[in-house]
Amino acid sequence: MTNILGLGGNFGNWRQPKNNFSTKPESLTILPEEVTQIVDVISLFTNRIVFLSSEGKLYQTDPEQFQEKLKAIEDIPPIKSICAGYYHILAVSNEEQPKAYGWGNNNSGQFSNLNKQIEKKKPTLIKGLEKITFHEIYCAGYGSFFLNTTTNVLYGCGNNYNSELGVLGSKSKEQIIKLHENVVKVFSDHSDHVFIIKTDGNLYGFGTNHKE
């Protein structure tokens, strides 16, 4: 198995809870032996951690209950990539026609027009993408983005109170809408701002700028 190290607060989220704080990197103990390689790791503010294996399987911790060995999430196709916002997770399937799944907090329409589900632990197919071709996913604080790398069109949904989606209007967007054209890359994290690179090679930013 790939040797993944962690440090900082533990609380049983990434290794056996021998102590609650680690000042030096320590190996994970929660992944099963059949996991040969981890290709991506994301985490939420709620201390939930999600691991993506090279086989396209997802493993996630439960902040409320320590598991000695994690089990792969079932009822989901092989996954190509994952991302995390403040309290929500997106995953895109590794299929010819990719599908997007979301779980966690949907209080700002991060999962399109699904019912507002709080701390949902299992991936749910995101509705509203059936007629949209996309290849890559990105998460902002309370927003979700879907990029078509063939046409360079960016779609999105979620919180837009501070123009996190880069469109006019202050309300949350619970429908997946067309946002920007000529986009080749998106940069975002748990913050309320987003950067995009366009085909002209320039970098653009939008969202919260209260700290300039």
Score class of each variant (00 low, 15 high):
residue 210 H to L: 12
residue 145 F to Y: 15
residue 186 V to D: 02
residue 60 Q to T: 12
residue 45 F to G: 10
residue 148 N to H: 04
residue 15 R to V: 04
residue 105 N to T: 08
residue 23 T to C: 09
residue 167 V to Q: 10
residue 20 N to I: 04
residue 100 A to I: 06
residue 209 N to Y: 11
residue 148 N to Y: 04
residue 52 L to N: 03
residue 113 N to R: 10
residue 3 N to C: 09
residue 198 K to C: 03
residue 7 L to Q: 14
residue 148 N to Q: 05
residue 185 K to Q: 11
residue 204 Y to E: 02
residue 82 I to Y: 10
residue 68 E to H: 09
residue 94 N to S: 15
residue 88 H to T: 08
residue 7 L to K: 14
residue 178 K to G: 10
residue 171 K to G: 10
residue 74 E to Y: 08
residue 138 Y to P: 12
residue 8 G to N: 08
residue 42 I to D: 02
residue 191 S to P: 12
residue 40 D to M: 04
residue 132 I to S: 11
residue 201 G to L: 05
residue 44 L to P: 08
residue 11 F to N: 12
residue 75 D to Y: 08
residue 95 E to V: 02
residue 31 L to H: 03
residue 89 I to N: 11
residue 23 T to N: 13
residue 163 S to P: 06
residue 94 N to G: 07
residue 169 G to T: 02
residue 110 Q to L: 00
residue 82 I to F: 11
residue 57 K to Y: 11
residue 126 I to Q: 09
residue 187 F to H: 02
residue 52 L to F: 07
residue 53 S to W: 12
residue 109 G to H: 04
residue 121 K to T: 15
residue 11 F to T: 00
residue 123 P to Y: 00
residue 151 T to H: 06
residue 49 I to N: 02
residue 26 E to V: 06
residue 83 C to N: 08
residue 92 V to S: 14
residue 165 L to D: 11
residue 39 V to P: 01
residue 7 L to S: 15
residue 158 G to V: 10
residue 99 K to W: 06
residue 150 T to E: 14
residue 109 G to R: 10
residue 102 G to H: 00
residue 67 Q to A: 08
residue 2 T to D: 13
residue 186 V to T: 01
residue 112 S to M: 06
residue 78 P to G: 02
residue 144 S to A: 14
residue 122 K to S: 15
residue 180 H to T: 08
residue 84 A to E: 05
residue 5 L to W: 14
residue 77 P to A: 07
residue 187 F to W: 03
residue 123 P to Q: 00
residue 47 N to F: 14
residue 181 E to Q: 14
residue 181 E to H: 09
residue 119 E to W: 14
residue 163 S to D: 15
residue 89 I to F: 11
residue 31 L to G: 05
residue 196 I to K: 00
residue 182 N to A: 11
residue 62 D to Q: 07
residue 128 G to F: 00
residue 197 I to G: 03
residue 131 K to C: 00
residue 107 N to G: 09
residue 209 N to A: 15
residue 13 N to F: 08
residue 71 K to C: 10
residue 137 I to F: 02
residue 5 L to P: 05
residue 161 Y to E: 13
residue 74 E to H: 08
residue 51 F to Y: 13
residue 95 E to M: 12
residue 1 M to E: 03
residue 126 I to V: 07
residue 90 L to S: 08
residue 183 V to C: 01
residue 68 E to K: 14
residue 7 L to F: 15
residue 152 N to P: 00
residue 170 S to K: 13
residue 15 R to F: 03
residue 67 Q to M: 08
residue 146 F to V: 02
residue 210 H to M: 11
